[in-house]
């Protein structure tokens, strides 16, 4: 199931009337444990918190005399469950929360590193270069032909390659190590990125996929002459290693790319999608 379709459990640490507050150290330990396990936790106290949404609520508290409150959402939209955590240590609390998560069929967190592109629409000019570049269908266009990230689960972990092809430095990966890809402000110095892109283009002969095609063709010629498939593979690996160095792309990602013919087929598809989106966008703008 795509992660967009999963439901989640929201935990509330209740310390108001009818419940005993936790000590600061216990509170910190419990929160840290639950956050490490991927839960969203609301701590009640002085001030306001975000209103309820439709996710299932699990209210934890050291309820007076273990009297667990009964409550339900008057509009019937939010399922509310209570759990008395009197006398429980952090591990036991986490265990009970996991139990509730399983019972409600809510998402298990942490199975996928959230690595995907985030578009800075203040900078994006809708040129569609990212859509034409990505072979994994991460990008698409909305009904008006505007670029958007559609299938973020398909993105290859730790690969920031598409941010390198964006001419406007508009693609961020918030978990990337350095700016501006991590979301840090784009500075004048970053505009030197254009130069870097030229270098990548020069290195690859102008177009990543054209370069792969060339190398694939060369390899095929040799293959037919020499019947040496090891050589063709070595050729592909050489090209991919160059790409890895130039674009900061993990070698594992490059090595998992499909065969050159499949790359070309997907690149053609992506380009056609980009062209259709641009045409649609021009229509809606005019």
């Amino acid at each position: 199931m795509a992660i967009k379709d999963q439901t989640t459990l929201r935990v509330v640490l209740y310390e108001g009337a009818g419940a005993q507050p936790l000590g600061a150290a216990d509170r910190f330990a419990a929160l840290t444990e639950l956050l490490e396990r991927g839960y969203t936790v609301t701590r009640t106290g002085t001030g306001t918190v975000a209103p309820a949404d439709r996710s299932t609520l699990l209210v934890l508290g050291r309820f007076d005399e273990g009297r667990v409150p009964q409550a339900e959402d008057a509009e019937g939209q939010v399922a509310v469950h209570f759990e008395d955590i009197s006398g429980q240590d952090t591990a036991a609390i986490a265990g009970r929360v996991e139990w509730h998560r399983e019972q409600r069929g809510a998402a298990r967190h942490g199975e996928w590193k959230p690595w995907f592109p985030v578009i800075d629409y203040d900078r994006c000019t809708n040129c569609m270069q990212c859509l034409s570049f990505c072979l994994f269908g991460v990008y698409g266009a909305d009904a008006t032909g505007r670029i958007e990230v559609q299938t973020n689960d398909n993105c290859k972990t730790n690969c920031p390659a598409c941010s390198r092809v964006c001419p406007e430095a508009a693609i961020m990966f918030p978990k990337y190590k350095a700016g501006p890809i991590n979301g840090d402000a784009v500075t004048a110095a970053d505009l030197g990125r254009e130069r870097m892109k030229v270098d990548i283009s020069a290195l690859l002969g102008g177009d990543v996929y054209a370069s792969l095609r060339q190398r694939s063709d060369d390899a095929k010629v040799r293959f037919s002459k020499e019947r040496d498939d090891k050589k063709a593979l070595a050729e592909r690996q050489k090209c991919l290693t160059k790409l890895a160095t130039a674009g900061d792309i993990p070698v594992e990602v490059l090595m998992s790319l499909p065969a050159p013919d499949e790359i070309l087929r997907r690149a053609g598809e992506a380009k056609a999608k980009a062209a259709a989106a641009l045409a649609m966008n021009h229509q809606t703008q005019s």
């Binding site: 600061a24 910190f28 956050l35 609301t42 701590r43 009640t44 106290g45 001030g47 918190v49 959230p114």
Partner: peptide, 28 residues
Amino acid sequence: VLRRLCESGAAFDAVADLCEMAARRDPA
């Protein structure tokens, strides 16, 4: 930062990872 928040009397929302929530288009 979390320790200070826990020592204060303030109410707050804590999320494990905003990136993960954004990826799942979490209505929260």
